[in-house]
Design a protein around this nucleic acid. Structure first.
Lengths: 225, 225
DNA sequence: ATCTGAAATTTGATATATCAATTTAAAACG
DNA sequence: CGTTTTAAATTGATATATCAAATTTCAGAT
C-alpha cells in the first residue's frame, strides 16, 4: 500500500494486448451489424486499417472462429457468420447454461449466499421505485454473480459469459419499461426462493424461462435497432 | 463425375492446416492427461518440439484458450487448466446444450425425422443382441445427429460439439457393459417418443438426465484410466 | 463473342526477426 | 549470510518476410 495506490489505472485499452483489443473491436462490429453476415474479412486490409500486423489479428480471428462468429474456409478466407437466428441461438445457449448453473447452485448453495441473494432482492424492490435503471442493471448482474459463485461452476460460468450479445444500450432500453422491471424482480425472487429451498429442478426451470423471456425482449430491441 | 472420383482422399493430416493439426494434438494431450493441469506451455519449445514455427501454434493456443483448456496470463505464459472438476462441468455443459437442442427439436421436428429416429431405435434394439459395440456407437451418434438436424440449431450444435471429451476407448469401454447398452436404448427411445409427441419439456428433461447419467459413467472410466 | 488456359496477382498459411516485459542470475551492499 | 540492485537471459507479443493455394486477368483459339 505505498504511493502506487495514488495512481489511477491507465485507460483499459493499454491494459489489454493488441490481440484482445482487436478481438473486442471485431466482435462488437459483428454483433452490432457493422460487419454483415457473409462479409469476407481480408487479413491484410483489416490489419492495415487497424494499424497493426496480421499476427495479433489472426489470433483474434481464431478466437472469433472458436466462438462461431466467423467461419474460416481453409486457404480461402474468413467470413462473418452472424444473423438474427444465431443471436436467438446464443440466447438459448445462455438460457441452457445459466439454468444448469442455477441447478448446481441449488445443490451447493450456502446459507450466506442465500442471505446475499435476499439482500439483493430487497434492494431491487427498492430500486423499482427509484427508477435508477443503471443501478438496477448492476443489481441484476450482482444477483446472477451470486448464483454463479454459489454454483462453484467456473467453466460453465465462463462458457455462459461467451454468450452475451446484448449491448449496454439494449439493456438500458429493456429495463426502461416498468413492466419489465417488475417482471424481472418477480422472477429473480422466485429463482432465489427455489435455490434457497434447494430445489434444483425448479431453479433450473425458472432460470431458463427467465433468460428466454427477457432474452426475447432484448432480441426484439436489437432487431429494431 | 469424372476421373477425379477414382482417387481416394489423401490422409487427413494433409487436409488439415498445421494450425488445426496442432490444435488437435495439444487438445488430446490435455484431455488425456499427458499435459497436466498447471503445466506451463513454452511457445518456442513446443513449436520446436513439433517442428513448426510459433505462428500456427499461437493460433491453436488461442482456440484452446477460448475453449477454456488453457489459461493465458498476459506477458507471462500459458498454463494448462483441466482437471476432473472441469471434465464434469464440460459434461454438464453438454447436458445443458444437448437438452436445449432436444427441446427445440421437439418444437420443430418433422414427421420424416421422427420416422428416421424410430428406424434407428429399431436398429439399436437389434444391435443389443449382436453386441457389435462399434456399430452401436455409430448408431448413437446418428441418433443424436437426427435430433440436431431436426432442431435446426446450428450454433447450439457447434457449441455442444466443443464439449466432447471422451475418447473412443472410453466410449467402447462404457458400451461394453450390457446394462449400459440396455439403458442407453431405453433412454433413447423415451427421448424419441417425447420429441415425436412434440413435448419440449419432457424431451429436454429426458435428454438432460440421459447425458448426465451416461456422462457420469464415462467420467468414472476416464478417471480410472 | 465465348471459352480455355496460362501468367500475374492476391491472399491465407507459415516462418523468421524484432521488441519489450518478465524472470533468473549475478553482483553489490548491508 | 541475507537482502537489495542490477545486468543477462528468457519468452510472450508483435512485426515482417516468404511460401503456396486460390483467384483474377487476359491472350489466343475456336
Amino acid at each position: 500500500m505505498g504511493i502506487d495506490n495514488a495512481l489511477l489505472p491507465v485507460a483499459p485499452v493499454f491494459l489489454k494486448s493488441l490481440r484482445d483489443h482487436v478481438y473486442g473491436l471485431v466482435r462488437d462490429a459483428i454483433l452490432s451489424g457493422r460487419l454483415k453476415s457473409g462479409e469476407k474479412l481480408n487479413e491484410r486490409h483489416l490489419a492495415g486499417q487497424l494499424g497493426i500486423s496480421t499476427t495479433p489479428l489472426k489470433e483474434a480471428l481464431r478466437v472469433l472462429e472458436a466462438e462461431g462468429l466467423v467461419r474460416s474456409e481453409p486457404r480461402r478466407g474468413i467470413y462473418v457468420t452472424f444473423n438474427a437466428g444465431q443471436a436467438e441461438e446464443m440466447m438459448l445457449a445462455r438460457a441452457a447454461l445459466e439454468s444448469m448453473i442455477a441447478r448446481q447452485a441449488a445443490k451447493r448453495v450456502k446459507d450466506e449466499d442465500v442471505a446475499l441473494m435476499r439482500e439483493l432482492i430487497v434492494e431491487m424492490r427498492a430500486g423499482l421505485m427509484t427508477v435508477d435503471v443503471l443501478q438496477l442493471i448492476a443489481l441484476n448482474e450482482r444477483f446472477h454473480n451470486v448464483i454463479h459463485e454459489a454454483s462453484g461452476c467456473g467453466y460453465l460460468r465462463r462458457l455462459q459469459g461467451g454468450q452475451s450479445i446484448y449491448t449496454h444500450a439494449a439493456r438500458l432500453s429493456v429495463l426502461s419499461e416498468e413492466r419489465e422491471r417488475f417482471l424481472a424482480v418477480e422472477e429473480h425472487e422466485a429463482i432465489a426462493n427455489a435455490i434457497a429451498d434447494r430445489d434444483p429442478d425448479l431453479a433450473e426451470r425458472l432460470m431458463r424461462d427467465h433468460v428466454i423471456r427477457s432474452g426475447e425482449k432484448h432480441l426484439i430491441r436489437v432487431s429494431e435497432a
